[in-house]
Design a protein around this nucleic acid. Structure first.
Length: 363
DNA sequence: AAAGCGGGGCT
DNA sequence: AGCCCAGCTTT
């Protein structure tokens, strides 16, 4: 059976499905979320895998399922513990949205992950890719699950020259998947496209000589596989200057602060931090003043212990790190706490503050 | 359509 | 120093 794509590329669909799925069944990696088809576990794995490599996700997935084995366990958990389970994984709104959606499934769907495109796409944090992934992998429904791998693989096989950085391009690839997908085994088909992208059809120097669908690949036939996909570059990051301090009381406990519920690193914990908006502010005296302007209690900065730099996807933090002490006026609140070394392990800190604490401990 | 949102590994 | 990664939400 042959189909005619919009760009006049012909594919033998049955042979393509067979070659792709056979390869996947023989060569797929042994991954913890492939041990069963529990929709909850498939869901958790797909959220973790957003913009995150398989090797990074594996230990997080195992611990997360250990801590929250079922939808009920996650729905009933404290958010601080949920964030602790995600600590270091990044994009923390993923797990806050996941817990929110799990609560909705518990209440509205009696704890059963819905299996219709409309219902599942309405869940918080579930976009077009994740909806298709859960529907196909957990329920065997032939829906496209188009991620970066799939766009790269199909841009090569079908020589699609659309800019995959543009949001509108995803529809082109979803249309292609709808025409190509196996209705006998949508789960293997979708996973195989992604597995192929991860193991063979890689961004740079794809292993075409090992590719199970090389004979179907128009980019390989034309010798343009390294020119695809087309992807425009994104704007570069901006620098943010910060001063942050490890502040202790007379007993050696440390001041920590809960970040706001919205924006960067929402609801995670940090050491007292201020932004230095102007170069002129980039001095110790100024930092002291700014700390004490912005906080009820009085802080005394003792010494500068170094610098921590941290790169985010859209900005760079340059943090000057101080130590200091507080006076007796400090009072604990919901967002300002005094904790011991041991108690710190209970709170989720983003990586820049983990770097900062490591620097402090190395003194 | 563009920007915000983490962190690590590879080139 | 970029680029990429099993993307989604908000503006």
């Amino acid at each position: 059976m042959l189909i005619e794509q919009e760009n006049s590329v012909k594919i033998n669909i049955n042979a393509f499905q067979h070659d792709l799925i056979s390869w996947f069944k023989n060569e797929q990696r042994d991954l913890p979320w492939r041990k069963d088809q529990d929709p909850y576990k498939v869901w958790v794995s797909e959220i973790m895998l957003q913009q995150t490599r398989v090797d990074t996700v594996i230990p997080y997935f195992n611990r997360f399922i250990d801590w929250f084995p079922t939808i009920d366990d996650l729905a009933d958990a404290d958010e601080d513990k949920v964030l602790k389970a995600w600590e270091g994984l990044g994009y923390y709104s993923r797990v806050r949205n996941l817990q929110s959606a799990v609560k909705e499934v518990k209440e509205k769907y009696n704890g059963e992950v819905p299996n219709t495109p409309k219902e599942i796409a309405e869940l918080k944090g579930v976009g077009p890719y994740t909806a298709g992934a859960i529907l196909s992998i957990a329920y065997g429904i032939p829906e496209p699950a188009v991620d970066g791998n799939v766009m790269r693989v199909l841009s090569r096989i079908l020589t699609i020259w659309e800019d995959i950085a543009k949001p509108s391009s995803r529809k082109i690839f979803e249309k292609a998947v709808r025409e190509l997908i196996s209705h006998e085994d949508p789960s293997s088909f979708n996973q195989a496209l992604m597995e192929l992208g991860a193991l063979v059809c890689t961004p740079t120097s794809p292993s075409c000589l090992l590719c199970p669908v090389r004979d179907h690949c128009h980019a390989f036939f034309e010798g343009v596989q390294t020119e695809l996909p087309i992807k425009t570059k994104k704007a570069k990051t901006r620098d943010v200057q910060l001063a942050a301090a490890i502040i202790t009381d007379s007993t050696g406990k440390i001041v920590i602060h809960k970040r706001p519920a919205n924006g960067l690193l929402a609801n995670l914990w940090e050491f007292p931090t201020i932004e230095l908006h102007h170069p002129i502010q980039n001095s110790r005296e100024y930092a002291v003043n700014l700390f004490n302007q912005n906080h009820e209690f009085e802080i005394k900065l003792e010494q500068t212990i170094g610098q921590v730099d941290h790169v985010f996807s859209h900005l760079v933090w340059n943090m000057k790190v101080y130590t200091g002490t507080i006076n007796a006026k400090f009072q604990e609140t919901e967002e300002w706490k005094l904790v011991s070394f041991e108690e710190m392990k209970e709170y989720a800190f983003p990586v820049p503050y983990q770097k900062m604490f490591k620097l402090y401990q190395s003194l």
